[in-house]
Simulated scan of single mutants.
Amino acid sequence: MLAPERQSRILKELQRYEAVRVTDLAAALGVSEMTVRRDIEALDGKGMLRKIHGGATRLTRLSAVEPGFASNSDLRPEAKEAIAQEALALVKPGMTLALTGGTTTYRLATLLNRVEGLTVITNSLKAAEALYQLQPADGSKVIITGGERTPSEALVGPVASAAIRCLNADICFMGVHGIDARRGLTSPNLVEAQTNSAFTASAERLVVLADHSKFNVRSLASVAELSDVDTLITDDGVSAATAAIFRPLVRTLRLAVIPPSRASSDWSAL
């Protein structure tokens, strides 16, 4: 098992429990306690948990703290891949798509060479790079908005928003930091929230891509109300209770199924 996968599972346990023990983690992962300690030290260094004697504790998620692309890219990769595959089913040849920043929207970008004749508008540097490297030969093209770069490798601000307002998309695929039943889609970055609001207004349909950890998280700035969301795609790791709360608040809630070969390696409990 690679370090990113181990670390992702440690963080997943800290979503369920406020603290975890090195001995329990080592037994569940089938690795040595020294390996777990190294993983905890690495995550502590990234500011993603707090190392304590014999284990680790959860950090309180602050509403104005914006994680970087690198720190998020290793988290819940199976869920993000499943969500991206589900989103791809909504894409038809010849569409104009808007793609916001985020690690799940990035994964969707890596799949878009399977569909012909797309025009993709994006403020994500990572997504634009992935689309360029795919080099589709079917006339597909990428439009980058410009703007000020954020830790999540997105371009935001008045330049980005002005460019987005001049364009029209069939679907906007949006990544979010948090989804709150009362405050809707939220972001820790005020300027990115404004840019994503411009994306919402530019698209005929808003499709939100968010793994199960994003629910019941309220960040600093609201982007859009849940009533603006046409489709919310999450993974089947979301609890039945959470799905029941959010299903009536959007037009469509779709659960992406993580393949058994991947999902079976998740822990049932420590």
Rank of each mutant, 00 (worst) to 15 (best):
residue 2 L to N: 14
residue 8 S to Q: 03
residue 11 L to G: 00
residue 12 K to H: 13
residue 22 V to D: 00
residue 23 T to N: 02
residue 24 D to F: 01
residue 24 D to N: 05
residue 32 S to C: 04
residue 39 D to I: 00
residue 42 A to H: 15
residue 42 A to K: 08
residue 57 T to M: 09
residue 63 S to W: 04
residue 67 P to T: 06
residue 69 F to Y: 08
residue 74 D to Q: 12
residue 83 I to S: 04
residue 85 Q to H: 11
residue 93 P to T: 09
residue 94 G to E: 03
residue 94 G to P: 01
residue 95 M to L: 05
residue 95 M to Y: 02
residue 96 T to H: 03
residue 108 L to R: 10
residue 114 R to V: 02
residue 116 E to K: 12
residue 116 E to H: 07
residue 125 L to C: 10
residue 134 L to K: 10
residue 144 I to L: 14
residue 145 T to I: 04
residue 149 R to L: 13
residue 152 S to P: 00
residue 154 A to D: 07
residue 161 S to H: 06
residue 162 A to F: 03
residue 170 D to W: 05
residue 171 I to A: 10
residue 176 V to E: 03
residue 186 T to W: 08
residue 191 V to T: 14
residue 195 T to Y: 13
residue 196 N to E: 15
residue 205 R to P: 07
residue 207 V to F: 09
residue 207 V to T: 14
residue 208 V to S: 12
residue 208 V to G: 10
residue 212 H to M: 09
residue 216 N to L: 09
residue 224 A to Y: 04
residue 233 I to M: 12
residue 234 T to H: 02
residue 234 T to R: 06
residue 239 S to R: 14
residue 240 A to C: 07
residue 244 A to T: 15
residue 245 I to S: 08
residue 246 F to V: 14
residue 247 R to H: 11
residue 248 P to G: 13
residue 248 P to N: 12
residue 251 R to D: 10
residue 251 R to P: 02
residue 259 P to E: 11
residue 261 S to M: 09
residue 262 R to E: 11
residue 262 R to H: 12
residue 263 A to V: 03
residue 264 S to C: 15
residue 265 S to T: 15
